[in-house]
C-alpha cells in the first residue's frame, strides 16, 4: 500500500523503543490516512456531483444507477439556466452590492480599529466590551425595527439597506483588525507621533501598509458575507430586476417543476465558482482569517 510505505519514509532517529513500536505506528498512521481519504472524499463528492449534474442531458440526469461522467457534455444547461432566470443580471446586482459593501468596510473599519488599538482615551475599554457584545447579538432581533427604519427612509428596493451599514463598521471586522494592529509594537506609533505625524497619518502611512494580510482577510469575509446574504435582499428587494444571485437561485427551487436538475445545478455552480476561485487565489487568507476568529478575545 502506497500510503503506508510513504509513512515509513522519514525514518526518525530516536530511542530504540520507538523502533519496536514502529510497525504498530505505521499501521495506525495508514488507518488514519485511509479514514481521512474516505471522509475527505465524502466531503468533496457533493461538489463533484453538482458540477457533473450541471453538464448532463435531461435523460442522463435521472439515470439509475447514477452516472458520473456526463455523456455527452451538455454545456447548454448554463445558458439555459441564465435564460430561465436572468442570472447575468442577478450576478451584476450581487457584484454591485458586494463591491460597495467592501468599499464601506475598508473605509470605516481601519479607522475604528485604530482608535480601539492605539489611541488611549477614557471609555475606550468599556466601548470595546460593547463591540464584542454586539458580535454575539442574534441578528434576528434587529430585523424588524431595521426594516421599518429603512422603509421609513424610503430605502426599500434600493441596495442601501445592504450597503449603508458597512460604512459604519462591522463589529467582527473591527475586532479582527484591532487585534492585528495590537501586534505592532507600541513604540511604532509613539515614535511617529514624536516626529509630528498625525493619527490619520500613522494609520494610513504606517499601519495600513503593514496590514495587508488582515485587510485581505476582512475583504474576503466581506465579499463572502454579501455574496451569500439571503435574508436582507429577500426582505428589502421585491423588484424582480433587482434580485441578487442568492435570492434568484431560490426561485429555481420555487419553480422546480418547470426547470430541470441540470439547469439548477448549473445555476448553483455559477454562484459557487467565484467563491472557489477566490479561495484558490487567496487560500492562505481564508484559512488564517477563520483561524483568527477563533482566538479568544
Amino acid at each position: 500500500m502506497r500510503v503506508a510505505e510513504s509513512v515509513n519514509l522519514p525514518a526518525r532517529a530516536g530511542p530504540s523503543w520507538r523502533y519496536r513500536r514502529s510497525t504498530r505506528r505505521v499501521l495506525r498512521m495508514s488507518a488514519v490516512h485511509l479514514a481521512l481519504v474516505a471522509t475527505g472524499f465524502l466531503f468533496l463528492l457533493p461538489l463533484l456531483w453538482m458540477v457533473s449534474t450541471s453538464l448532463k442531458s435531461l435523460t442522463q440526469q435521472v439515470a439509475w444507477p447514477p452516472e458520473w461522467i456526463p455523456q455527452p457534455f451538455v454545456w447548454r444547461n448554463y445558458p439555459d439556466a441564465a435564460a430561465f432566470l436572468p442570472l447575468v443580471r442577478y450576478t451584476l446586482n450581487s457584484l454591485t452590492i458586494t463591491v460597495l459593501f467592501v468599499i464601506g468596510t475598508l473605509l470605516s473599519c481601519p479607522l475604528i480599529a485604530y482608535a480601539f488599538a492605539r489611541i488611549r482615551f477614557p471609555g475606550r475599554d468599556f466601548l470595546f466590551i460593547v463591540l464584542i457584545a454586539t458580535i454575539m447579538l442574534p441578528g434576528v432581533v434587529r430585523l424588524i425595527p431595521t426594516y421599518l427604519m429603512f422603509r421609513q427612509l424610503g430605502f426599500l428596493n434600493t441596495y442601501l439597506p445592504m450597503v449603508l451599514p458597512a460604512f459604519f463598521g462591522s463589529p467582527l471586522f473591527i475586532f479582527l483588525l484591532r487585534q492585528y494592529f495590537r501586534t505592532f509594537p507600541e513604540e511604532l506609533a509613539d515614535a511617529a507621533r514624536m516626529d509630528g505625524a498625525s493619527e490619520i497619518g500613522i494609520l494610513y502611512r504606517i499601519f495600513m501598509p503593514m496590514s495587508g494580510p488582515a485587510l485581505a482577510v476582512i475583504t474576503i469575509f466581506a465579499v463572502q458575507s454579501q455574496w451569500n446574504d439571503f435574508v436582507d435582499p429577500l426582505i428589502y428587494l421585491n423588484k424582480e430586476k433587482m434580485r441578487t444571485l442568492a435570492v434568484g437561485l431560490y426561485y429555481f427551487r420555487a419553480y422546480q417543476d418547470t426547470t430541470n436538475w441540470g439547469q439548477m445545478m448549473a445555476a448553483a455552480t455559477m454562484m459557487t465558482a467565484p467563491i472557489l476561485i477566490l479561495f484558490a487565489l487567496f487560500q492562505r487568507y481564508f484559512i488564517q482569517g477563520v483561524a483568527l476568529t477563533g482566538m479568544k478575545g
Binding site: L47, M50, V62, M264, T272, L276, F279, V290
Partner: peptide, 28 residues
Amino acid sequence: TAFYVPSIVPQVAAVLLFVWLFHPQIGL
C-alpha cells in the same frame, strides 16, 4: 482543503445541491 471547501459554498447553492442529493428516487 477538502474538508474546508464545502464550508465556503454559498448557502443557497449548497441547499439546492442537497435538495438534489436528498431526492427520494434518484438522489445520490
